[in-house]
Write a protein that binds this DNA or RNA. Sequence first.
DNA 1: ACTATATTACTAACTAGTTAGTTAATACAG
DNA 2: CTGTATTAACTAACTAGTTAGTAATATAGT
Lengths: 230, 230
Amino acid sequence: MPVMELDVASRTPKVVRNPEASRARILDAARIEFVTHGLSGGRVDRIAEQSGVNKNLIYHYFGSKDALYLAVLERIYADLRARQQDQDLRGLPPIEGMKRLVSNTFDHFVATPDLIRLMSIENIHYAEHLKSSGSTKALYSGLLDTIRILLKRGQEEGVFRANVDAVDLYLSISGLAYFFLSNQHTLSWLLDRDLAARWRVLKRRQHVVEMVLSYLTQASPVEAGGVDPQ
Amino acid sequence: MPVMELDVASRTPKVVRNPEASRARILDAARIEFVTHGLSGGRVDRIAEQSGVNKNLIYHYFGSKDALYLAVLERIYADLRARQQDQDLRGLPPIEGMKRLVSNTFDHFVATPDLIRLMSIENIHYAEHLKSSGSTKALYSGLLDTIRILLKRGQEEGVFRANVDAVDLYLSISGLAYFFLSNQHTLSWLLDRDLAARWRVLKRRQHVVEMVLSYLTQASPVEAGGVDPQ
DNA sequence: ACTATATTACTAACTAGTTAGTTAATACAG
DNA sequence: CTGTATTAACTAACTAGTTAGTAATATAGT
């Protein structure tokens, strides 16, 4: 009658089962896979292989390829929300606060290329997964509030122009950074410049801050009318 | 010995052969397919079905799925070049010329959503197809020249600021329109606004023109330094 | 007859998802 | 604390359907 509880195997803390870790490894591998190849190009078999887990375990935990993709999407949006530290900008002088808001947004985009690629991928798929997500909504409310607070104070102090829509401003701040980063590959080729070079990224950052601040600090539009659409 | 050349089938002017038309129909169907589903999500069988042509004819004309995709990409870039009518802007007063350049760019993006989606798709694939293309290079040289000419005249007349990089300005003009359009689906959901609504597009157009012109017409940056990267 | 054009039928490889089970952890009665 | 029932973690092998690409063959125009 062998004494089981004292043999080597049972004392060795070799973790054969570890649901938390398995789930996390699947999710990490899935993020890399979908970010690299897109949703349609992403392969479940490759995710299984890379996470060192049997394919069916993926279905055990996540149900389907689409559900796994959604989990990846939700996690990266949750990370975004967690990292958005814009509350402390509300107390700053408006110009300084807005400068920091613009450069923080830019820096965050630069730091997380996965976010940009997933946003592009999700838009290629008409945001159908995001729309079927319970979370993720109300992601921007905090950021938009910060923008509104800074705008209002700047207008009261007379340093910002009137009639600025917070959403419009947010779209501009993001767009100025996003396009440069999301379309880096085509643009670098077509413009014959390595847009990923560090000095160019920093130069771009400066340009974006200046453009947004110029807009905000200019009293009134050059000419009210603009150009008629054709 | 039957007389074949006088039967109904041969007298009917049913155009069985029309290589030009077949090629064009394949290309049209392929554009719709790739724009709708992406490259990995696009199906050759569906392209054959939609163009009313046998699948192998596609391989006869284009060789492979990737080559067909590249043909679609090259055509949409060729259309872009053909439609870029910015030469006539060079003679306008700088402010007026620049206003029109910004709104033309915006309008062109709005008018050709296929272009935006294909640009996104190509960037998801790291621009690998574009890079293997003989044509398409030097696409922006004309547009950049127009920007440089208007910038220079504006600076000489004292209405535009100094030290503006033409490429930086181009990236901003495009980015301000592109992000709003390319990420319409996620943004409309997250911001709870229908960004595709006509009045919002027009409002956005106005905002973009104002932002670019504010930047150009402001004499000097609010403060030279900007914000240090973290 | 000959060639470009077109089609039918086919295949090898792939791919999301399933089946049918084994093994480890945990709860729980005695 | 020990044996047993139950649940959860995990796996190998497979299936049904898809997909890019091809080979053999037909037909029309000249």
